[in-house]
């Protein structure tokens, strides 16, 4: 799996895909979607799809791409190798979403939450397969948020496709298990080969599992914290684990859309309320304050009384 | 402590050795009556007003430091006659007689106002706003309202010219200063320029004088 593009620039997203087997263009196919790295506070989240002709599902099952959660990293690598060897009838594609992209999406003014990001990424991968000529007739995917809403969304987007949204889909449907393998292997590689843009000096890379409830991960977060800049971009700033540490130990930072009256949220935090439209037009002025000539206040210029 | 400031290079010119470098000082703002910050250059040859570009939610990175105060200070030359005018008017109200300048420009709240008298050309321009008498080698001054209004009128005319050259929006429409339109629009009249310029000049003179200037 060649992640060199993402290794070079791990600030955005990166798409990878296998060549499309000819048989997937000629026959009806089923497609599975799964994700890797949803829960951790560190590293990217990866969405993966895997597809094969309906007629070859038995062959896919024979590869024994079981529930990937029970497998070790080495076992996942081995299974991915098997999928690669089955390239005459199995195709895959991945979207790697960097922690920076996740953080900025969740924290920008028009909030783009993780579920929406997940849905859109999944749908974009299905569309990619269709655009590449894969004859997708069935899609299987695990639930992300309310199952019925996700199913409806997918059905509206792909009316010609039979969509099945089911909890634990990776243990029910081999094509989802296969997608899970691809996604997890990609995340494993991305994390292992992560290039920190920041100069972290002597910081040890012993961050544990990367999950928020791992004490080693929390300790590492505390150690790598910069009071002004927060964390390296390896960290998902939008995770409450990260925000709590910033709350306690970073300097207060206020943005234009910070919550009204708040003392100031830390580097990562922003208010969630929608600001009044009026707030964009006028700065509040004390009743006794004399307003200067429009030349000055239109340009944001004011008299200085003190340095 | 540090601030970010844009000023003409001449502010920090040091001709020869001198201990009288540029000085920030608080003076009486002739319009508001409150303290405001001004700058005298080396040897107080020139007066500058200090304004700040100030929007909410800004800070600075300066090299390897962070500065909370996100203002950008701007220093621009200012005619010291505006500052002296306040004291001339005050002296006229209180005494109504000819006095030496160093007895007119006195302020217990702002003792550095005496530095205004060092400004180059101040004395040669005082006649625009005063009547003068010379007794022996000493000059005596008295505020002249009519002369002052004539001088201020010239200031307004100069300001109108500058507004036109600078294509400043003086019309009634509210428009973003970063919006570049083809022109002022057909609804802008000469009166709008004069009204705008009067308003700008009024930022530098007492309210009563501004009202008189408006009538003039």
């Amino acid at each position: 799996m060649d992640l060199s593009d993402f290794e070079r620039d791990n600030t955005g997203s990166c798409r990878l895909s296998s060549p499309v087997p000819e048989v997937c263009r000629a026959e009806d196919c089923c497609l599975g979607i799964d994700e890797a790295g949803r829960g951790p506070v560190l590293g990217p989240m990866v969405y993966g799809i895997c597809f094969c002709p309906l007629s070859r599902l038995g062959d896919l099952e024979a590869l024994k791409v079981a529930d990937s959660k029970t497998l070790s990293e080495a076992e996942r690598e081995r299974l991915f190798g098997k999928l690669e060897q089955a390239r005459d009838f199995v195709g895959w594609a991945l979207d790697i979403l960097s922690p920076n992209l996740i953080s900025t999406s969740m924290q920008r003014r028009a909030k783009y939450n993780l579920n929406s990001l997940s849905h859109d990424t999944a749908m974009a991968l299905v569309q990619l397969a269709l655009d590449q000529g894969v004859r997708v007739t069935q899609v299987f995917v695990d639930t992300v948020g309310p199952a019925d809403k996700y199913q409806q969304k997918l059905k509206e987007r792909f009316p010609e496709v039979e969509v099945t949204v089911r909890p634990k889909a990776d243990s029910l449907f081999p094509v989802v298990s296969a997608a899970s393998i691809c996604a997890k292997v990609a995340r494993d590689h991305a994390v292992k080969r992560w290039k920190f843009l920041e100069d972290l000096k002597d910081l040890k890379m012993d961050y544990g599992s990367g999950y928020p409830n791992d004490p080693k991960t929390k300790e590492w977060l505390s150690q790598c914290l910069d009071p002004v800049f927060g964390f390296p971009q390896f960290v998902r700033f939008s995770w409450s684990t990260a925000q709590l540490i910033l709350d306690g130990r970073a300097v207060p930072v206020r943005w234009e859309d910070s919550e009204e009256g708040a003392g100031g949220s830390p580097a990562a935090g922003r208010g969630s309320g929608t600001p009044s439209l009026l707030s964009y037009f006028a700065r509040t002025q004390a009743a006794t304050e004399r307003q200067s000539h429009r030349f000055f206040h239109e340009r944001g210029l004011e008299t200085v009384a003190d340095l | 402590d540090q601030w970010v400031l844009v000023a003409p290079e001449s502010v920090t010119d040091l001709p020869g050795k001198t201990e009288n470098g540029p000085v920030f000082t608080r003076l009486h703002n002739p319009c508001t009556g409150e303290a405001a910050l001004y700058l005298f250059d080396t040897n107080a040859q020139q007066l500058f007003e200090v304004k700040a570009f100030h929007e909410d939610y800004h800070s600075w990175f300066i090299d390897q430091t962070v500065q909370h105060d996100g203002r950008l200070l701007l220093v621009t030359p200012m005619d010291p006659l505006f500052m002296v005018l306040y004291y001339l008017i005050k002296a006229e109200k209180e005494q109504g007689k000819f006095q030496p300048l160093d007895q007119i420009v006195i302020d217990a709240d702002f003792p550095s106002c005496s530095m205004l008298l060092q400004c180059a050309k101040l004395k040669s321009f005082l006649h625009h706003v005063t009547d003068e008498k010379e007794i022996g080698n000493k000059k005596f001054y008295k505020y002249n309202k009519e002369k002052t209004l004539k001088w201020l009128n010239k200031k307004v005319d100069q300001t109108v010219r500058a507004l036109k050259i600078g294509n400043v929006n003086v019309g009634p429409r509210v428009q973003s200063t970063t919006f570049i339109s083809g022109g002022q629009g057909s609804d802008v009249k000469e009166e709008d320029y004069i009204r705008y310029a009067h308003g700008l000049i009024s930022e530098y003179i007492p309210k009563e004088l501004s009202e008189d200037l408006a009538k003039y």
Binding site: D199, F229, W255 | F61, Q64, T65, V66, H68
Partner: peptide
């Protein structure tokens, strides 16, 4: 000039996290 208010005066590891770009 930053688009946020940082309530602190003091050292900041600017060059560790930012590189200038034109």
């Amino acid at each position: 000039l930053l688009p946020c208010e940082i309530r602190h005066n003091g050292p900041a590891a600017v060059s560790r996290f930012f590189s200038p770009a034109i």
